[in-house]
Design a protein around this nucleic acid. Structure first.
Lengths: 170, 170
DNA sequence: CTTGTCATGTTATTCCATATCATGTATGCC
DNA sequence: GGCATACATGATATGGAATAACATGACAAG
């Protein structure tokens, strides 16, 4: 088996942040932006890293590490876990990719460049993932943290439910 | 090895929602409350389930499934993964325990009985976990969801950072 | 050319999680 | 009481996520 079991949605034509768009352009744009930012920041968008980012942009949904690994093997790269995890670490570290903790999976960032601690909406039927900007440290949580003296460094905000497409079908 | 590696904090005297309190009483109270609620709702708080809940209340921090498993074995229960996972499923399902997605680990609920979709503060130094009440569907995320027609069923809100105790020590 | 740094690759292991099947035990009905 | 049913437990096996440890390759600076 090629470890593709989990993230395969019912309908494999990947939904996209819950709305249609010109996908090729979108991928190219994002890839270009990443390249630019890397050049600017002195980061190295190497072949593996670039390939992983491209895959995630292409899919436009959450992929597990081992699904990514399969694709890397198919593309002629190394196929051992650390290869994928290192590339993912780099991409997450630099904001090109986000990890969806709920799914142990990864999605390309939808707001390249923008400063953000993102929030996600995850459809439990089709695995579509939409990214929303969010201001987490503002709300009740921020207040609670300040109250007890907890210093927030990073937040995970993920909503699970049913996306509009799946609601419609039912 | 007994799989205790990950969640062992620097200081094993488990921090508690970031403040001291009468622990035995706290455990007994929570256990009693759980028992009462189960009786009321026709749920069966069996020995394994009770033991797991007691362990988590006792620890007052996030424990991985295999750490729980170790303790179950020591207590004379079955020691295979499904034993722990089934008990955890029951406890999570009925609100006695929460899963911390970021850690793939579990904590006892701090607000027994209360209706809540909880938010957590996780110290990345000592693994202490504090639970805050939260009103997730209210904030920006709720607005975004309504805007696109996404139906939220459950939310994960986890803040990672440094707890007051660890800040103090530094 | 040597050294240092960073990226990649490989092996092996640990940890998280679930499917499956067998066995036991409580409960309600006859 | 005896039996059927549902549910809980136990054990086996396996799959998927993540990292530790170590070796190699590419490349720039000195």
């Amino acid at each position: 088996m090629t470890s593709e079991t989990h993230p395969i949605p019912v309908d494999a034509t990947a939904p996209v942040g819950f709305h249609k768009h010109d996908h090729d352009t979108c991928v190219q744009t994002a890839l270009g932006a990443a390249e630019a930012q890397c050049k600017q920041d002195g980061l190295r968008l190497t072949p593996v890293r670039r390939k992983v980012l491209e895959m995630l942009l292409q899919e436009h949904r959450a992929l597990g590490a081992y699904a990514i690994l399969d694709r890397l093997r198919d593309a002629g790269f190394g196929s051992q876990p650390p290869v994928a995890y290192r590339a993912l670490d780099f991409l997450v570290q630099n904001g090109f990719v986000h990890k969806i903790e709920r799914l142990n999976a990864f999605v390309a960032c939808s707001h390249p460049g923008a400063e953000h601690s993102p929030a996600f909406m995850i459809c439990r039927k089709c695995d579509a993932v939409a990214e929303a900007k969010s201001a987490p440290a503002k709300g009740i949580l921020g207040a609670a943290a300040r109250a007890v003296g907890f210093e927030i460094e990073r937040t995970v905000v993920e909503a699970e439910g049913i996306c509009p497409d799946c609601t419609e079908k039912a």
